[in-house]
Design a protein around this nucleic acid. Structure first.
Lengths: 192, 192
DNA sequence: GGGTCAACCAAGCAAGCGCTAGTGTGAACG
DNA sequence: CGTTCACACTAGCGCTTGCTTGGTTGACCC
């Protein structure tokens, strides 16, 4: 065992690991598969990561941090209406999920494979991301754009978005932006 | 190897397997864990199932068949309005998912662990279930109760429902019926 | 030119995996 | 009483798993 830092090499390896985790799932991905994808031998892998768990934690950290950054940027750029902000969040979420369909998907679907310490460390990141959503949804509720229970609406919307990774075909005709439009249209009522 | 039938004993074992698959995931569940849960030794397990894959297939088959039966019963009982039918489907879906939170969850989350033959055999069951949903959603669209693309609305609604298994607390204050109400309220517009 | 260090490799260990072979055992049936 | 059969057991095989060990390489540095 050697380093635990975040060298550029490690970032690169993390990205390649994410792809395999999405394709096969964490449990089915062996360290030998990871090593082959990375072009090294399985032993060399443990020069960069303490163990397999740490690879997962690195992937999930990158995925969540990336999603958080993109969501913040989207909110900063869009119009300041509740509807525009809702749509910006949905589009940002879908883009991190579907176009660079790697780390963020792992963060969602392999979360429970994390050991308790990593989960504890990463939950703050996830909370920050969900707090963004809650702000946006609260504003939409206040503007009478959507109706219902604050908590449930957030969960339902996240569910609809997250499930896209199960059926979305990137070669198909629909863009993430398109999907975001349709979802917002489905749940919004004309403010009145 | 011996029998492949569906004896009552096998049904019972299948139900216990489902519980472990939900808790741990298919890959993490070993045949020794399954055997212990069933109160037998790991070798005896293969008297009832050809291999581990077949246990998964049995669980998923039961989960889907159960969901299908409950959905059909719910549709037969409810009022014949598009809104009532939509809500009946949502409630039925949530009940198979959340109260008997076993086989149906496995069917949703471990589908890709099936080998191609089982997947092929079971896809007909799943198609029948999804066809029910499409009928109900088409009717709601025709009645102007919801708006949007037929395909996308169905996916979004299924996503919102399926994701509940990630956060639903059966000890909490909300019932599946309650959730179904809220979801339908969120996506329906007053027909006009 | 000796020292340092990140990066990699070859070889393999201990544990756990799915699964098999061969053997009771007790209830059911003629 | 003898046969059958569903069900279970013991024991372990062959393989894969995550991970360790000890050593090599080549770039960089004073």
């Amino acid at each position: 065992m050697t380093v635990i830092n975040d060298s550029p090499r490690r970032k690169e390896l993390t990205r390649q690991a994410a792809q395999l985790f999405v394709q096969e799932g964490f449990d089915r991905t062996t360290v030998r598969m990871l090593a082959q994808e990375m072009g090294i031998k399985s032993g060399s892998l443990f020069h960069h990561f303490r163990d397999k768990q740490e690879i997962l934690a690195a992937v999930i950290e990158e995925g969540t941090q990336n999603a958080l950054a993109i969501a913040r940027a989207a909110l900063a750029e869009c119009d300041n209406t509740p509807e525009a902000r809702l749509q910006a969040m949905a589009r940002a979420h879908l883009e991190t999920l579907l176009t660079d369909r790697n780390a963020h998907v792992v963060a969602l679907y392999e979360w429970r494979r994390l050991d308790p310490e990593s989960r504890d460390h990463l939950s703050h990141l996830r909370d920050a991301y969900e707090a963004l959503w809650e702000q946006v949804i609260d504003a939409a509720l206040a503007a009478n754009l959507i109706h219902g229970d604050r908590f449930l609406v957030a969960r339902f919307v996240m569910g609809a978005l997250n499930w896209t990774s199960r059926w979305y075909d990137p070669a198909g005709s629909r863009s993430p932006d398109d999907l975001a439009h349709e979802l917002v249209a489905m749940i919004t009522h004309d403010a009145s």
